[in-house]
Amino acid sequence: MFRRLHEPANAVTIQIDGSPVRAAPGDSVAAALLATGNPVCRQSPASGADRAPFCMIGACFECLMEIDGVPNRQACLVPVREGMQVRRQARPTPVGAVASPADKVAS
């Protein structure tokens, strides 16, 4: 969705959902994501709708991604690092979608 005014010097490579993405040192993970064709970073926990980074200054919490195994990190505040593993976050399984063990006891 965004393009760079210059090609980055000393580019680093991170993985987003397993695909390599080139980024400039100093880029935030969210910036690296937005330089790809797909700005979506996660599904909203409430409805599951796709969301993308919105404020880029750490205020809106739309850019939450799993970074190096840690979920819910603010991708707009985390700088890229060579080899970083980034994942888009799926909507958490809602409560009630799974039968409750207590229900089974009762029935």
């Binding site: 965004f2 393009r3 005014l5 100093g26 935030s28 910036a31 937005l34 330089a35 200054i57």
Partner: peptide
């Protein structure tokens, strides 16, 4: 912010 921090447009 993208323009300032990353030179992206």
């Amino acid at each position: 912010s993208l323009l300032k921090a990353s030179g992206m447009v």
